[in-house]
């Protein structure tokens, strides 16, 4: 199967980068240095969101950025990673938009943030 490398190239008034096929966009996004960068790229436009939300991309992304260290259990108590550790921001308790929203589960994808884990869409 050959990939449609230039499928959207001719659409006018589009940023040039959107002329790249998804697998080339993925190639670029896999090389931004942090997951936070990927998160901000996802904010930029629908195309980027779609590429980033794709399951195969997330799998590739996971192989580049390992799961962050979230904390450890000691005597049945969970100690989250704290400030000097780079993954500390992912470990802070999250607040949810409204108390009536359903609690997220591990399976929650792009629509919720799980309580302790880092980005739920990974």
């Amino acid at each position: 199967m050959s990939s449609p490398v230039a499928k959207r190239l001719d659409t006018e008034a589009q940023p040039l980068i959107l002329g790249l096929a998804d697998d080339l966009l993925e190639d670029i996004l896999l090389r931004v240095p942090t997951l936070a960068d990927v998160g901000r790229v996802a904010t930029v436009c629908r195309t980027f969101r779609r590429v980033i939300a794709d399951r195969s991309f997330r799998r590739r992304l996971r192989s580049v950025h390992r799961a962050p260290f979230l904390g450890f259990f000691l005597r049945d108590k969970f100690h989250p990673a704290e400030a000097p550790h780079p993954s500390a921001p992912s470990c802070e308790p999250q607040t949810y938009p409204s108390p009536s929203s359903p609690p997220p589960t591990c399976e929650t994808s792009a629509s919720g943030i799980s309580a302790t884990a880092a980005p739920s869409w990974i």
């Binding site: 670029i28 996004l29 896999l30 090389r31 240095p33 960068d37 904010t43 930029v44 436009c45």
Partner: peptide, 17 residues
């Protein structure tokens, strides 16, 4: 790809745009 990624890194969404 690395070059384009470097153009993106550390920027806010509006800066990326």
């Amino acid at each position: 790809a690395k070059k384009v990624a470097d153009m993106i890194k550390g920027k806010s969404p509006m800066e990326i745009r």
